[in-house]
Write a protein that binds this DNA or RNA. Structure first.
Lengths: 200, 200
DNA sequence: GTCTATAGCCGGATAGAC
DNA sequence: GTCTATCCGGCTATAGAC
């Protein structure tokens, strides 16, 4: 129930365009494709958005809206090393695992984003989560490790798991269990807690 | 000094196209762009490659050729937990840090690769490194952690560091030192060894 | 606000001279 | 093996009727 200021058709256009942009990228989607999905003609799109570039930017904004609600609260409520790590890992796993569109857009933007779109990602997703996590990470590992790098290492561990999944699946040792979010979360939390060492 | 079977011009075309494809993606590069970079016309490209799709595939093959020489030897020569982790992390850091083109292509392929191109990445880069690493990881952490997942977690930690760098740089706490490969390698090895815990 | 029609451009690919 | 010239299809965007 958000106040976006978009007309009903404009929202339909944004929601229709997002899976297309996610799957094929900006250059891989034609205005006709979006229009067909909505059920109108390409010309009608220009009544709602001035051009393709703007439509893409609005779609990105729309996709990344309201993704970080109450992360800060959950994190400050979590107790102990294990609880806080699980909270941080869990946030990213849940944000990324369920939403293929968000994940693909994010992945594409990491290759292609210009200054403006990077700023959008920062404002809508990364900045607030980073600021919430940083103090926790400093407290947990500040003595031994760089908290700034650590935040991105944690994010990267989760993100890359999804990115690399198509490659991982094709290598020996892959199991159906490796797709489950609980298994992945537990794997990452265990690694962050104690490292790989068999004998501590 | 490799035997590729390509004429001198064909090699020039491949080498000219790679930075373009890396920077702008398949759809973002015109045959005319490649031709201009080489210094010939677009029509002349078709004397060397039957079409754009094939040219892209050959360019990918070319980019990923000979990237894993003697990793297996280095790994088996490494001694101790620390030495082996450093070897594995170091391989990926070195492979990815120095080569922006390879990194961008890899990143784009992880979004867009079809069956054929995924197989190419597996054959040229991932399969052999994975097989060399797996036994080591099993021996190091087999009792506590899933070696299959662990391989991709390690790869992902390195890869995502470069991917996320544009975002990381814009957040408070970023330092010039965070760009240095030694700093990154040490950070990751420390984390993998012992986890984040301040008090072991 | 949507349609049809179309302008104007660009991209991949081909023909044929040299 | 490279060139010039060109075809043809697809793309964004606009004009104007309804």
């Amino acid at each position: 129930m958000e106040k976006t200021g978009y007309s009903k058709t404009a929202v339909k256009i944004l929601e229709a365009s997002l899976p297309l942009f996610a799957a094929h990228g900006f250059n891989g989607v034609a205005m006709r494709d979006i229009a067909n999905t909505v059920g109108i003609t390409a010309a009608a799109l220009y009544n709602h958005f001035p051009g393709k570039e703007t439509l893409y930017l609005r779609a990105l904004e729309y996709a990344f809206a309201d993704k970080v609600t109450n992360f800060a609260d959950s994190l400050s409520a979590a107790e102990g090393l294990h609880g806080r790590l699980t909270c941080m890992i869990g946030f990213w796993v849940e944000t990324l695992a369920g939403d293929v569109v968000l994940r693909s857009l994010l992945q594409r933007e990491m290759s292609d984003a210009d200054e403006q779109r990077l700023q959008l990602l920062l404002d809508r997703l990364f900045a607030s989560v980073y600021l919430s996590s940083r103090d926790t990470l400093l407290a947990l590992a500040g003595g031994r490790m760089d908290a700034h790098l650590l935040f991105f290492t944690i994010l990267g561990m989760v993100l890359s798991h999804f990115q690399l999944a198509p490659i991982r699946r094709r290598l020996p040792g892959s199991l159906p269990a490796h797709e489950e979010v609980e298994v992945i979360t537990r794997h990452l939390v265990t690694l962050l807690r104690d490292g790989v060492t068999t004998t501590p």
